[in-house]
Design a binder for these strands. Structure first.
Length: 100
DNA sequence: ATTAAGGCATGAA
DNA sequence: GTTCATGCCTTAA
């Protein structure tokens, strides 16, 4: 059993639409005090359709280079479609960052 | 202001 | 010990 993985995936589902979470927030919310672990779980994402890994971004709002949905480019489109605003290349964290 | 690179820290496989 | 969808730091252009 991988409790951290289960918690992280569950954390993804509880991210409201139009909001984004940072790796740090996800790691702290799940008790896994390491953003890298979160990133690994997202990469091992068993079902991208159920777990919106595209809602997890860097602390500064930038996106990962090789995203499972078609690169950072595709992720930007997905988030934008959900109502997330973008400041150039980065997500507008001030408005869409979830409050833990 | 932004990008790139290098280094160090953290936690798990 | 090494790697990794990170974070923060510094240096450079």
């Amino acid at each position: 059993m991988k409790p951290y993985q289960n918690k992280i995936l569950k954390f993804l589902t509880k991210i409201p639409k139009g909001k984004v979470a940072t790796y740090v927030q996800a790691s702290q919310a799940t008790g896994v005090n390491s953003p890298r672990v979160v990133g690994r779980v997202l990469h091992n994402n068993p079902d991208p359709k159920r777990f919106p890994c595209h809602r997890v971004v860097f602390k500064d709002g930038s996106l990962a280079k090789n995203f499972a949905f078609g690169g950072d480019r595709g992720q930007r489109a997905l988030l934008k479609s959900e109502g997330v605003s973008f400041a150039g290349k980065k997500v507008d964290m001030l408005k869409h960052r979830i409050i833990i």
